[in-house]
């Protein structure tokens, strides 16, 4: 019996936004004379696609084409304050700030359009393709570009908006812990199948399936990118990664990728995921945060699967071959003793 298989799963929730609130993000939006919009943020894109997501949210609220949105980030001279990109907060916090700024800019845009169409702004709607028309009367229409030209050169008006999203601070009661720590909760459940070699202690993750519930997805492909990348990182955390293999001893201390082990492409199983959407009341269009939770399900699911395969009780990570062999030795000793 050299190779045994097991399955395990884990259910997790994850809070959106900095714990205990009090972390603001602000946004500025302005229209150019050509009728496109610049969204200016101090938020930082780490590769997750923040600029894309904020452009989608801005386009949705303004009612203009996605392609007409430019998102500028990460400059303290131009970008209004953002606490930073962490705590699964950016889609929610920056997204909400963009919604607010876009609402104000949209209002200004519709006022100018109303002057051009001789109609009240409340009677106007956008078609999302770059036109504004009187509700129900598609022919009585101006383009967003015409509105921009008129605003800049005819009326001398700015079409711009400010957004400031803040979840108020809620300090924890030191005695009971009472607090309002987050804006919403996202959920996930991950199922894993592993194969463990009882002679070498090596683990192979054969299959990983997950269900995520992240509110309204702004961009499903990018959500999936987080899930797949996080699944891989979860394998790394569960089986390989540590800067202190002798923890709590400080040696050995890996200083390179030869000694700080991570899974490679060959250790990555097929990852299946299904995403449920229960929109969050507080989120931009119902969105919740997904960036961090994606390692949290895979890690315990893998360890549960290993325990299931071997009928042992391992409770630490990383589950290195050494940990597995030690657990098997203990099991044998108990059975023998």
């Amino acid at each position: 019996m050299a190779k045994v298989r097991g399955t395990g799963f884990a259910a997790v929730n994850y809070p959106t936004g900095m714990h205990l609130g009090g972390d603001p993000t602000q946004s500025l939006i302005h229209m150019t004379p050509a009728g496109d919009f610049v969204v200016t943020m101090a938020s930082v894109d780490l590769g997750q696609g923040l600029r894309t997501v904020l452009a989608q949210i801005a386009a949705e609220t303004l009612g203009v084409p996605y392609e007409s949105i430019v998102v500028e980030t990460a400059d303290t001279d131009t970008g209004p304050h953002c606490t930073g990109t962490f705590a699964s907060r950016t889609t929610h916090r920056a997204g909400n700030a963009v919604v607010m700024a876009a609402q104000e800019a949209r209002k200004a845009m519709l006022e100018v359009a109303g002057e051009l169409l001789e109609a009240s702004p409340e009677d106007l709607e956008t078609d999302g393709d770059g036109n504004i028309h009187i509700k129900g009367v598609a022919e009585r229409s101006v383009s967003v570009g015409e509105v921009a030209g008129a605003a800049h050169f005819g009326y001398g008006k700015t079409i711009a908006g400010r957004g400031a999203y803040l979840k108020p601070p809620s300090p924890m009661d030191p005695e009971t812990g009472e607090c309002d720590p987050d804006s919403t909760q996202a959920h996930a459940c991950t199922i894993v199948e592993v194969e463990v070699d009882t002679e070498t202690g090596m683990v192979e993750v054969l299959d990983m399936k997950s269900v995520y519930e992240v509110g309204q997805q702004v961009n499903p492909d990018l959500v999936k990118g987080q899930i797949v990348g996080g699944s891989w990182m979860g394998i790394g955390h569960a089986l390989y990664e540590t800067t202190a293999p002798g923890y709590p001893a400080i040696d050995p201390a890996p200083v390179d990728f030869q000694n700080y082990l991570q899974p490679g492409a060959s250790e990555m199983p097929e990852v299946t995921c299904e995403v449920l959407e229960y929109p969050a009341e507080s989120g931009p269009y119902g969105g919740k945060g997904v960036g961090e939770m994606v390692t949290n399900g895979p890690i315990p699911a893998i360890v549960n699967a290993i325990n299931n395969a071997l009928d042992v009780r391992i409770t630490q990570i990383p589950v290195t071959p050494e940990v597995i062999l030690r657990a098997l030795d203990e099991k044998r000793a108990q059975a023998g003793g």
């Binding site: 590769g47 797949v228 990348g229 891989w232 990182m233 490679g264 492409a265 060959s266 990852v271």
Partner: peptide, 16 residues
């Protein structure tokens, strides 16, 4: 997989 084995990626999980 073999051809890319000298290249690390921390974000995507390699599958894409």
């Amino acid at each position: 997989v073999e051809g890319l084995s000298g290249n690390l990626c921390r974000c995507t999980g390699f599958a894409p």
